[in-house]
Write a protein that binds this DNA or RNA. Structure first.
Length: 174
DNA sequence: TTAGTGATATCC
DNA sequence: GATATCACTAAA
């Protein structure tokens, strides 16, 4: 495998339907008091703007969704069910509320378990994954095949949006 | 199948 | 102000 390259603005500044399937196989790095935690992403989901009824920004700008309108690479971290932190990275052009939910890594399946394993909490909300000294993403050159599937936990969305295969799962590596 | 947990949105 | 909902998980 090649050297460890930090993902730059260009990576995130594409449509979420290009970014989210590119995430499985990449690494997330989080600098903590005890050193750098690094895990390989195995699953991601796309949330694609105000037209996507599954996306939190479907109803437009609110205090919560504000970060989704920020520059690509911005972290959107929020608490779900009072217990689980969800980690997302904003994609697309600034002003376009898209994000990729990082759903799982090889050793922690499920978005809540992933953030727990990486010790990620809401203090990272709004930080920039491109320039932050605390959290960033890396490419070590690993290539992989990715399978599409419907998104999880979005029963509130329209039937059309529920069906979209915008969940991207690492299938195999080469 | 269901409890747990708290921020947020949406309604008075 | 109150209430309903929630991009989930662990336990039963």
């Amino acid at each position: 495998m090649g050297e460890l390259l930090r993902l730059t603005r260009d990576f995130f500044a594409r449509d979420v339907l290009e970014v989210a399937p590119d995430l499985p196989g990449k690494l997330i790095a989080h600098r903590t008091q005890n050193g750098i935690l690094r895990l390989r992403i195995s699953e991601a989901e796309a949330y694609r703007g105000e037209q996507d009824t599954a996306c939190h920004a479907h109803r437009g700008r609110t205090r919560r969704t504000e970060v989704l309108y920020g520059p690509p690479g911005t972290l959107y971290v929020y608490l779900c069910y009072g217990i689980h932190w969800m980690l997302n990275v904003v994609t697309g052009r600034e002003g376009q509320p898209q994000a990729a939910l990082v759903r799982a890594c090889l050793t922690a399946e499920g978005p809540g378990k992933l953030t727990k394993a990486l010790q990620i909490t809401g203090t990272l909300n709004g930080q920039d994954a491109v320039s932050s000294p605390e959290l960033w993403l890396e490419d070590d050159g690993l290539r992989c095949r990715v399978a599409g599937a419907p998104r999880v936990g979005i029963g509130y969305a329209s039937p059309e949006d529920r069906q979209r295969p915008w969940r991207f799962i690492l299938e195999s590596t080469d």
